[in-house]
Nucleic acid binder design. Structure first.
Ligand code: ZN
Ligand code: ZN
Ligand code: ZN
Ligand code: ZN
Lengths: 130, 130
DNA sequence: CAAGATATGTAATGTAATAACATATCTGAC
DNA sequence: GTCAGATATGTTATTACATTACATATCTTG
């Protein structure tokens, strides 16, 4: 069910750039990295990002207008994902928390709200940057 | 301590537009609303939004690149704020939840992360839009 | 092979946010 | 009152982020 298909050429290129990045990259930063490989237009990157995001191999960080490779070893289920973003070094840590998830589910249920997607991003300073 | 100063002319204009809006507005939508009052440039709106956001009279919705008037009757303390955003009607509900807040504080403490700002936005369908 | 689906290439445009600089208004010290 | 610093405003240009529209190529599958 819902197998992740093999990546296409552009998807692979974008994925490899994000996998090697130490912090989130904007679509235009990714494009610049890939000009040597022949990419020229933002849309080539955005299309790849759309697919990668759909398959949850990549996540969009809304508060940065940027993208990170998923750091989950295993596949994502339907669970909520959160991010801790260091404002000093730029590093992002991805995490899941069942308590947060169930608390949000409870709020939604109480308020007759049907959630489809949750954005949870904490900005601050990571352990290495105190 | 930290009194909210009286609003300037442009801040008042922007605040009044947001207060009457039924859903979040982009800076450019606000600008269009205020052209009749003489505003002409995005920066006039962005500057007002910066101050209003600083005083927490307005919140930025990161996932929409848009802004809403704060719906808290009382003043904000340092607490975390969350938003439930209806993808059908556009309405946004602002809420606080101590459980979410303490759980995020716990995660941060466990991971030696010093948080400064949290973005929590749930997209979905509100009670009126099932 | 033919037909439909998926992926790619390219140009142009739309939308969001900031930089740089000039001018005006407010506020307190003298 | 007036001078000086701080705050607010006005204006133009530019940068950053994202999508529309259309043409072409490649990959399925009957
Ligand atoms: Zn992930
Ligand atoms: Zn750090
Ligand atoms: Zn509020
Ligand atoms: Zn609704």
């Amino acid at each position: 069910m819902n197998e992740t298909p093999a990546l296409t050429k552009n998807q692979s290129l974008v994925m490899s750039v994000l996998s090697e990045a130490k912090s989130p990259l904007s679509a235009y930063q990714i494009l610049d990295e890939l000009r040597p490989e022949g990419l020229r237009a933002p849309l080539q990157v955005y299309r790849a990002l759309d697919k990668l995001t759909e398959h949850k191999l990549v996540h969009r960080i809304e508060s940065l207008n940027a993208f990170v490779a998923c750091s989950h070893a295993a596949e994502h289920g339907g669970e909520m994902v959160a991010f801790a973003i260091c404002e000093a070094c730029g590093r992002v840590e991805e995490f899941c928390d069942p308590v947060l998830q169930s608390r949000l589910a409870a709020w939604s249920h109480e308020h007759d709200f049907i959630p489809t997607r949750t954005t949870l991003e904490i900005k601050g300073r990571c352990a290495a940057c105190h």
